[in-house]
Nucleic acid binder design. Structure first.
Lengths: 350, 350
DNA sequence: TTGCCGATCTAGATCGATCCAAATCCGAGG
DNA sequence: CCTCGGATTTGGATCGATCTAGATCGGCAA
């Protein structure tokens, strides 16, 4: 960097213009690659830009142009590898489009979500990608963001009614189809008595996943015993704890479709404690394909949601919305893919 | 420079001022909570702000005040739960201080790091927190960011000399001490043939971790066979792939100190594939204490770096630097803590 | 020489906020 | 009634870029 540049003081268009005896306007044209400038002039300017170590001030440009070059990404839990991977995908695609990601974490608190959203809004993002906190609702979100920026909901639905005048898009996972695939897979392996294990009844994703399971069972003409639906918190620990509930009534299931991978891994622990070998004596499937799923003992059959690809998709959707602000709001449902591993064995012959 | 999209019409200070027959300046004073304004006027203005749904334009304010309210966070790998947790910590503390996080992921590519840094710089962050990509060097980083914003290096040193005139702070982990603790622990459990597994030889953190291991081995009077140092990318997949290298020469090790948790978990996978039970037939330790470490099969003995706290600390350090731009640059080394779990079994007797 | 034209370049207003100096208001004191 | 001073309020310039409308400059046909 040139030593004649005073440290700390920023170089502006005016400095460059003065440096080559041109006007601000011309230098600005050069910066934006306008064909109006003489190529000789352009070369002179570009040299001066380098010489003075000029850095473009996008905030000033955005102010004048009334545009934005950032997108807010608000996540309920960055600690969850699923969302971390999602964030990486979002950032990658936004970066390629010349946008920058404004990050905000809410830690599953609707209150913090409010605060984070309005703080980010002040920085004028062109759009918002939001994976809502657990008890967040449409009314609160609307109060926080108004109609300043288009919103893309990811992964969870919001409580309360969606406002019609705002263009809120959605990107969701195909929960129902996923568990249906898993259930059909278990049926194809020969299972007839299949349980649905884990999750909270009042969560929308749990309801959807259970519906997919029920649909597959019904399509195969199999009956579902009431005691084959066991509720538990979507954590490994609670799942291990509730394992016994699978075996209290008759007939007992030979397999279980689990709410997600965490629950499935907990169920594996619980089975081991009862002397049952998961993937040998009892079959099970998960949902999410978290990194540990492939590493489990045995490796877990599960549904891959490709979180990085979902992130890229989310970024594309919001960029598309920026391009067409008035288009109808759309709901996208991302396909999930069944990953067959060893946990989904045929029923044991004993 | 890509073309960006126009935003809907915004409410500005002028609209508020007109709405209550006051000047822009007065409204601005109200916004900033100045004691100069009459409390009756203030109430009128605040009502009008709510009525029109005003959103503060921080970019415009920052332009005039020549300040910044954002910090860039540039990470080599957000997919790694260690960095994800770190990012959550950074974002939390920055948010509490009224700053917003500009996220950038480099995916371990020094080239992308350059691009990401200069793109983020155009948005005028007040400072930068950088966990460098693997082959990044001081010269390139300097070229990208110049002296526009103070830099805090996290986790890795940069290749090449640190420029003296720039105030580059550092926050590092006590890598060497950590692996030394882990190695001493394995030795105390009775191991004599201990390998060092994973990481890239040219990464500074890998060198430091290896040095701690070597130091402990030497202090215990144990020799290190050259083929006990296996290099691999710091990912689960590559670690699983390279597992065989541990068993190609004689004498074979009975335990391994791994570069980090990702590598250790990958090694577990590789061991399982070879029919060896990690934590029974072969002992291993990790580094980072990511969430999965405690949940592994078996749970992983590792070094806790408290990534969330490191993130908070990093945010505090950069904010402090903003407050005192001229202070001497400082290097902080964060302690790590050995967490003993089941993976570090005594050597198998067979 | 004059006038027109395309190719280049530029002055000045502008985006939405802040800062500064100066104006205005209002009641007390002379 | 007028002046003075503290409490409020305000006009206009400003941050660093972009935009609009118009200036400047050769060259060439009339």
């Amino acid at each position: 960097m040139s030593s004649h540049t005073p440290i700390g003081r920023k170089v502006t268009l005016n400095d460059i213009a003065a440096g080559c005896a041109l006007s601000r306007a011309t230098v600005s044209l050069v910066l934006r690659g306008s064909p109006l400038v003489n190529k000789h002039t352009r070369a002179r300017v570009e040299q001066e830009l380098r010489r003075q170590g000029y850095v473009y001030n996008r905030a000033a440009a955005n102010l004048r142009r009334r545009t934005s070059s950032s997108i807010a990404l608000v996540l309920n839990d960055l600690t969850n590898p699923f969302f971390a991977e999602f964030a990486a995908g979002v950032d990658q695609t936004l970066g390629e489009a010349g946008f920058v990601t404004l990050l905000g974490c809410t830690g599953e608190s609707a209150t913090r979500e409010q605060a984070v959203l309005s703080s980010l809004l002040e920085h004028g993002p062109g759009g918002i990608i939001l994976s809502p906190a657990e008890h967040s609702n449409a009314h609160e979100v609307l109060a926080a963001i108004g109609t300043q920026a288009p919103l893309l909901l990811f992964n969870r639905e919001l409580g309360g009614a969606m406002p019609e005048f705002a263009h809120w898009d959605q990107l969701m996972l195909d929960n129902q189809h996923g568990t249906r695939l898993a259930t059909e897979h278990l049926i194809a392996r020969g299972h007839r008595r299949i349980a649905f294990f884990g999750g909270h009844l009042d969560s929308s994703s749990c309801r959807q996943r259970h519906a997919g399971y029920a649909q597959a069972m019904q399509a195969a003409g199999l009956t579902i015993e009431p005691h084959w639906r066991i509720e538990c918190a979507p954590t490994r620990l609670d799942a291990a704890h509730q394992t016994h509930a699978l075996f209290t009534g008759t007939p007992t299931p030979t397999a279980a479709v689990c709410y997600n991978d965490a629950v499935a891994l907990g169920l594996m622990l619980g089975l081991n404690q009862r002397g049952l070998r998961p993937g040998k004596d009892f079959a099970l499937t998960g949902f999410d394909d978290i990194a540990e799923a492939a590493l489990g003992m045995p490796p877990l059959t599960t549904l891959s949601t490709a979180p990085r690809e979902r992130g890229q998709q989310a970024a594309q959707l919001i960029l598309q919305r920026l391009h067409e602000p008035q288009a109808d709001s759309r709901k996208t449902i991302a396909a999930v893919q069944l990953i067959v591993r060893e946990s989904s064995c045929p029923p044991s012959t004993t």
